[in-house]
Design a protein around this nucleic acid. Structure first.
Lengths: 191, 191
DNA sequence: GAGATTACCTAAAGACTTTAGGCATATCAC
DNA sequence: GTGATATGCCTAAAGTCTTTAGGTAATCTC
């Protein structure tokens, strides 16, 4: 009875692989046990339950995503930084669709606060330093940018843009132009 | 043995109710059978399988959403229409979180084409008539608007904005201002 | 190496999905 | 109305996944 060397860490990583290969909804305790050639019950020593497993994968994805984002914005500013961060998200989603889906899992407030989520907010906010936004407008802008990044990538990977010309990549590029223009000319007073 | 009067239509509607009450992932063939006080197997005469059931709920939600949007934009133009359509989406998501989650289900291309999805695209495009966008830019703008609507509402209902001031409603309002300003001053040439 | 801890196991119960085949009920032909 | 037919809901059963309880064997501590 050789030990398989399981751990919550390894389970989450393997779960992330299953998610990318077969879809996040195919990540089950059973599938994971098969992958490690181990009995299902054995996993419950490392992971509280199925939800816990999925949450760990979500946290992993959020971390990886934040790491990529941090690399992307490092040494950049203005539109350059904006595009780099946005592309970090989009590229990650295309490379790791299952992980990206995992990152969209609703986390309970406590878990969310301890996740890499706040890092994402800070990164986005750092981009705004290159633009000259009044302090109270920054939060609104952060939320708008987040919405565009998240929304576009979700719709794109979900096939929402795939049945019409032009290529969605073109729209992505134009969205970056639009966001840059918007931030440089942010409407402060309600018209 | 009185008949329960089931139909794919009624099942989808009841499934939508379960989704709103308990979450879209709680919509199962079993839960539906319980609600109609009928044996599980009986549902398989009306619905192909679990996936089929979920798809029908998604289609229902997309229709309802499109109906609301159409009502909202009727007789409006410019920013007025923009805000009305956006609010239609947001209000629907808040009133019917389960249905809204259902609307996000990935549909296979054929089903997507036959869904209300294209109606949504047309409605968004109709808003652009109030702004003066070059023809080829319209698709890009439609995709950007869709991304913001979808992204903001998803992040908001997922709790993404709930742990920081100010109120997300304020950010929503400012996002509308921003989109209006952007559309009135759309950057046509890449800077 | 003895004892304690840990890792994985067997066993079992419960929930959901799906298919096959049966009886009763509504619907239609006349 | 009566019989034929199609349909609606049923029982039964097999398969998958989740989760808990309690046991055995490997590893760690000293």
């Amino acid at each position: 009875m050789a030990r398989a060397g399981l751990s919550a860490e390894r389970l989450a990583r393997a779960g992330a692989e299953i998610a990318d290969e077969a879809g996040f909804d195919q990540v089950t305790v059973s599938a994971l046990a098969r992958r490690f050639d181990v009995k299902v019950a054995s996993l419950y020593s490392h992971v509280k339950n199925s939800q816990d497993l999925r949450t760990r994968i979500a946290l992993l994805a959020l971390e990886e995503l934040a790491d990529r984002g941090a690399d992307a914005v490092a040494g950049r500013s203005g539109k350059d930084a904006l595009v780099a961060l946005a592309n970090a998200y989009r590229d990650y989603a295309h490379e790791h669709p299952g992980r990206y889906a995992a990152a969209q899992l609703r986390l309970d407030p406590e878990t969310a606060r301890a996740s890499a989520g706040p890092r994402h907010t800070r990164m986005t906010r750092s981009i705004l330093r290159g633009y000259d936004l009044p302090g109270e407008e920054q939060t609104h802008a952060v939320r708008l940018l987040g919405s565009v990044f998240y929304g576009f990538v979700s719709l794109e990977t979900g096939g929402g843009f795939s049945h019409s010309a032009p290529e969605s990549r073109e729209s992505w590029s134009r969205a970056m132009d639009a966001l840059d223009a918007l931030l440089r000319n942010w409407p402060t007073a309600t018209p």
